[in-house]
Design a protein around this nucleic acid. Sequence first.
DNA 1: ATGCCGTACTGAACCGGATAAGCTGAGCCA
DNA 2: TGGCTCAGCTTATCCGGTTCAGTACGGCAT
Lengths: 339, 339
Amino acid sequence: MKRPTIADVARRAGVSKGAVSYALNGQPGVSEATRQRILAIATEIGFSRSSAARALSAATAGAVGLALCRPARTLGVEPFFMALISGVEAELSARSYALTLQVVADPDAEIAVYQRWWGERRVDGVLVCDLRTDDRRISALEQLHLPAVVIGGPGGTGELASLWSDDAAALTEAVEYLVALGHRRIARVAGLPELRHTEIRTDAFAAVCQRLGLVDAVTVWSDYTGEEGGRATRRLLSSAGRPTAVVYDNDVMAIAGLSVAQEMGLTVPGDLSIVAWDDSPLCRLVHPPLTALGRDIAAYGAHAARHLLAVVAGQPAGRVQDETPHLTPRGSTAPPRQR
Amino acid sequence: MKRPTIADVARRAGVSKGAVSYALNGQPGVSEATRQRILAIATEIGFSRSSAARALSAATAGAVGLALCRPARTLGVEPFFMALISGVEAELSARSYALTLQVVADPDAEIAVYQRWWGERRVDGVLVCDLRTDDRRISALEQLHLPAVVIGGPGGTGELASLWSDDAAALTEAVEYLVALGHRRIARVAGLPELRHTEIRTDAFAAVCQRLGLVDAVTVWSDYTGEEGGRATRRLLSSAGRPTAVVYDNDVMAIAGLSVAQEMGLTVPGDLSIVAWDDSPLCRLVHPPLTALGRDIAAYGAHAARHLLAVVAGQPAGRVQDETPHLTPRGSTAPPRQR
DNA sequence: ATGCCGTACTGAACCGGATAAGCTGAGCCA
DNA sequence: TGGCTCAGCTTATCCGGTTCAGTACGGCAT
């Protein structure tokens, strides 16, 4: 079963390959009548253009790359990436771009993947996730001149285009909400410290706690896994002067924290209020459902894809701000019980 | 910043393009000394072959496709797909194949994607997930002669290659385990009924319940979402003669079920035992941790990818069996409390 | 010296499109 | 009627590899 080529269409239509190409691309050079005839024949014999041939002569791959650099165990559990991917995908497939995915072990492997993709002309641009502090990938991408959109920031994105959301404002909102409920001893279970957004949230947390005079505020470090999130919670709740509220850097750790609290005989939200970051369906799965800082992650991905396609098309590499995560109060937060 | 081509390498090495091609591909036609010289120069100037040019002349895309056809909200939450993808990916990147991903709305859209991929020669083969009963995709792929490996079965995969695991045996093991604990009223919250593996599990459940004389066994239908899983559980636990144990078709529904049970004042495992399918980190996140039917999903994906590459290479389309999911008992199962 | 063979390479065709440059005939105006 | 323009095509070249059909040359047997 031979796949039809542009020459087959041309032969059936009684025109040259060039005419067919003009017709297919909506370019001037053929009459409207001929164009319609060619398009009809193309549809009839089930013709579609070889992506390879197109890529070769048009010097465009028709694909964008996404390299994910988290250990497999974190990757799978967090709904974040899958939601992001489906958003990216929706935008790309609407413009018939393909998404090429690669899971890598560390930033150096990721840089190697970028170099290979660039060398092979396999992608027209890439989306960069999980921005780090002093991220080597940024300068590597700048050197390659590979169009890229960094999902993260603000700051630390070099000359590259980026899409960021105001995590600092969101975290501030969450803390102010807890304080308004009457909490004074608030802890935060943070994600990996080398990630830029963790740093931003940490700074924001320190700032708002100082502003509101929360001297007992404490941040403990974790790695986004449920296991570590649970351990961190156990540590916090066992300490003297334990917090009455905890803010988690993702949903998975928040759920683990909830279950540790319940295991220790504490009631949520009576003894402990919990706020999760990344409002996924997981937060509504547990009892009580978790108050969360959320946003439309699929829309975030779609936005990033649109921005990347614009950069690929040669538009200036802007720093675009996306929606700020907002707080959705649910059953896991309440005024602290008097002790 | 111009990317070097094979002609640049040839010029520097003082040989023809053809010689460079032979050298790079490890084919006879150049002396060992020349080959080494060419390879050194290629490395030195950072040359890598354009995937497009290669695809065009070698008629191979160097990529495989994966179309995911679940509503975005299910996709994100279940760790299954991300784990599968990272397994697939590990295998593919080791052989420098790329993975092209597409999220689609329904089976017809998926067929359209396959047709487009085939027409554009964008992929060398595809992995097919979520096999359905009377799956239109199977015959569509057979007609296209697009190499494919169906992840699912046994049965219903037509002439296509497939990779399956013995869900029937796994489910039987779970039911026998619950019966050994003393349970007689066992319910099952099933996933989407149109999926082939749901059907297989349903048949196996009916068979084992009949064999063991469990007349009160009941299956209720759900859709893999936590919301529906919770609703189904609420229905089950409100009924007269409520079950003492429930087996869920995925981890997300099991967690939702756990939280419904706790909300209704039942203790797990005292009043209700819970078994989840798909043993993901989520199962260890909650309290009590869930007894689950699990397997190494990343390995499953890697296996599927290997099989697909073999089929792409022209090997016969075999039906390969993967590891059978096994039961990991945890805190959510115990003998039923006497009433 | 001649013929033959195999090795190591070269040159050119080809994959399937995009596109610049060239050609043709109809329509218009002077 | 001749010259000009321009729409509507065709032709040829290019993209960067792979591959097949030569070709040059050294070594060996006759």
